[in-house]
Write a protein that binds this DNA or RNA. Structure first.
Lengths: 288, 288
DNA sequence: ACCCTATGGAAATTTTTGATACAGGAAAGC
DNA sequence: GCTTTCCTGTATCAAAAATTTCCATAGGGT
């Protein structure tokens, strides 16, 4: 229940005056360093006066600015000590950074970030734009399909894409029911399929069948590349390998979002109208 | 440019007097928090007098104690901004070369990466380990719930967690059916809920109800923080803001995977057995 | 044994910094 | 349209902190 000071700030955000909110947001943006500076520095950074900063910390429930800073330091100290690898000599031996070695989150995060960076960097711009072109074209229906672990990725893209355009369908549920989706697939239509090792039989078969019907297949796969690459129009190999025995799909998530954002950007006009209508309809439904 | 103040201290360690070495080591042990306190606090912590601390700081090459603190803050800020990236200047350089500002993928990727980095860096180690503790405990049932856009995140965690342990359930489908999940919720059980702005009424109500029944709530939210924070045991504020008008959930994805990987690591023995059984069963099913 | 030097802390001094009172001004209410 | 209330910055003051000065002491060398 002990909430961090950042959380306390966020919870109070509503009760603050507009001017007080400025330093509050600055603090959250540069957490917690901004709060460790002097009042004057902090105030200048936020473009407000000293007393405003002091009123802010008072509203946050601190006796004084010094109390506030002490609380920030205490929190920072607790956060920076690594509770898992309680091996201080390792950190000292690793040495170069003072601490952080042996920090699971930091190490794991570095791997994820590297995967995302490399995946996006290695991604062909032509393939990307090509796929966006397909997804942005409202005359084409779009089918989405994922495997055992990647169903959530398909769902992710589906949740966003269906707000941006009509004619988006998610292939889900029992494998036996999938075939119904093939009924109306034509050569203009698009199938986005997620297939990572171990490449799933039913997914592969479905995608092959769709391709056989003329559908444009966009394949998102790991960098060993699914056999589906043979029938795919656009292939996105992303990095999933981690130092642990587990794989990471954050890079897939990043590719998804890049696609969404780009479609959004490319068709800003119609999409804006569509989203306004969505808002209106939503209001109608809720307003009952 | 000197790499880090910590290394500067280590290099000077030999040239210090015995008494000066005490605060120096204290600083390295509680880096950099000790140095952000007042001279008096720092001195007391190290069991020396104020002037000794000042002489130490002078020997490290700083004009004054305030200079020293400013340098520490600058370093901390830089570090928290790109805590994991090896080469922050690379990103800047990449932004200006060749494909330049027109490279949508590069710019977008940089934003995602920054979100992921900062989210993981700002994440409290205590909260993280606490949540892992809950999720790794097989005696506790785990419920997962996401909102309109975060359902895929809940699904993502669900897909992996159910391989690692029994007693995991995903709250999905029509809102009216959710209530059935509350039937068997007790005070040992855990609810992982994803709630980002605009915080969804039905999700908030469900989580409140679960908390009312004594469930431990783990909340994953954006950095404006869902009102559910009030009833949550562990809160993870994640950065979702992008330069575009669209938000990114890649950081949520990263947090998910960090949780999964850590549970995996913590309970490696039983999980390994469980996954072997899963393989065997899968073979049986497929083998007809 | 004596002196000399290096070292560290107590106290005094100065600087910086946080806190407060007050006034101008905008927004809200009557 | 006037009053009232609520914000917010300026100017000022008090407190706290950094810095300096100076002296005590310990250890080593002659």
């Amino acid at each position: 229940m002990e909430s961090s000071i950042a959380t306390r700030v966020r919870n109070q955000l509503g009760r603050l005056t507009p001017t007080e909110r400025r330093p509050a947001l600055i603090l959250l943006d540069n957490y917690p360093v901004a709060g460790l500076e002097t009042v004057a520095q902090f105030a200048r950074r936020a473009g407000v006066s000293g007393p405003t900063v002091l009123r802010l910390v008072a509203k946050l429930g601190f006796e004084s600015y010094l109390d506030f800073q002490q609380a920030l330091r205490d929190e920072l100290e607790r956060r920076l000590q690594t509770p898992l690898a309680k091996a201080p000599e390792k950190a000292v031996a690793a040495g170069e950074d003072g601490q952080g070695a042996g920090d699971f989150l930091a190490a794991y995060g570095r791997s994820i970030v590297e995967n995302v960076e490399r995946s996006l960097a290695e991604l062909s711009r032509e393939e990307f734009e090509g796929a966006v072109e397909l997804l942005a074209d409202e005359r084409r229906k779009v089918l989405l399909l994922g495997g055992r672990f990647t169903a959530s990725q398909a769902l992710h893209l589906y949740q966003h894409l269906r707000e941006l355009r009509p004619g988006v369908a998610l292939v889900e549920g029992q494998t036996a029911t999938w075939v119904e989706h093939l009924l109306d697939v034509g050569r203009r239509d698009v199938l986005v399929v997620y297939d990572i090792r171990r490449y799933q039989d039913d997914v592969v078969r479905f995608a092959r069948a769709a391709a056989g019907l003329g559908a444009q297949v966009v394949l998102i796969t790991d960098h060993w590349v699914s056999p589906l690459a043979a029938v795919a129009r656009h292939v996105f190999p992303v990095r999933t390998v981690m130092p642990s025995s587990w794989e990471s799909f954050s890079a897939i998530s990043a590719v998804n979002e890049a696609l969404i954002a780009r479609v959004h950007e490319r068709r800003w006009g119609p999409i804006k109208k569509r989203m306004e209508r969505l808002e209106a309809l939503r209001g109608q439904l809720a307003g009952e």
